[in-house]
């Protein structure tokens, strides 16, 4: 039973990832990406690591949506682009994402409410035996793996500096070219 659910979820992950790559429209691609993230988080749930699943939804689906909103805010250019977007939005284009999402939802509902009790017992024996709590993760991260936290902080720092330097560069060059045009 659980295997079927896993296979379905994995298929959804793969299909939506493929669609995210092949979609021409950025918005559609992002929506497929969100579906991928949701499916991956369901896989985490099936594996019994609920914390990772929650993080997956909060960080990836959440952060990506926020980024998406930022980008559209920055690229928003008034009536013309609105009309363009209106033109772009059809129910028919979102139907695949919708179908994939609804399959995921049905699976989740099935696991929660409709699964026969013996499969649930199977789950609890096979999967949930060493349930990893948030506390354990924190203890590991600030115990033997504390240096990894430092390294990842430095990694983010270097990425941040790179991004700022390159984008600032482009901005200053633009100003210069505008001045020369004037």
């Amino acid at each position: 039973m659980l295997e079927t659910i896993f296979i379905m979820t994995a298929t959804i992950t793969l299909i939506s990832a493929l669609l995210a790559i092949t979609a021409h429209n950025v918005v559609h691609a992002l929506l497929y990406l969100v579906v991928t993230m949701l499916a991956i988080s369901l896989i985490f749930f099936i594996l019994g690591s609920s914390f990772a699943a929650a993080l997956q939804i909060i960080v990836y689906a959440g952060a990506i949506m926020v980024l998406f909103i930022f980008v559209t805010m920055m690229l928003h250019q008034g009536e013309k682009s609105l009309a363009q977007e209106r033109h772009l939005f059809h129910f028919s284009t979102s139907i695949t994402a919708f179908v994939l999402c609804s399959i995921l939802f049905c699976e989740l509902a099935f696991i929660l409410f409709l699964a026969p009790s013996e499969t649930l017992n199977d789950i609890s024996i096979a999967q949930l035996a060493p349930a990893i709590t948030v506390k354990q993760i924190g203890q590991q991260l600030y115990g033997p793996y504390s240096l990894l936290v430092v390294i990842s902080a430095l990694m983010l720092l270097s990425a941040l500096i790179t991004a700022i330097h390159i984008s600032k560069n482009a901005a200053s060059i633009e100003i210069k070219t505008e001045e020369s045009n004037l």
């Binding site: 990894l148 430095l154 990694m155 270097s158 790179t162 390159i166 060059i173």
Partner: peptide, 24 residues
């Protein structure tokens, strides 16, 4: 593997900045 991977990422992310330093 985790320290190796983090080190690799730290190095390659910094390298991206170093390579694209003259952004124009």
């Amino acid at each position: 593997f985790s320290s190796f991977f983090m080190g690799l990422e730290l190095m390659s992310l910094s390298f991206v900045g170093l390579i694209a330093y003259c952004g124009h």
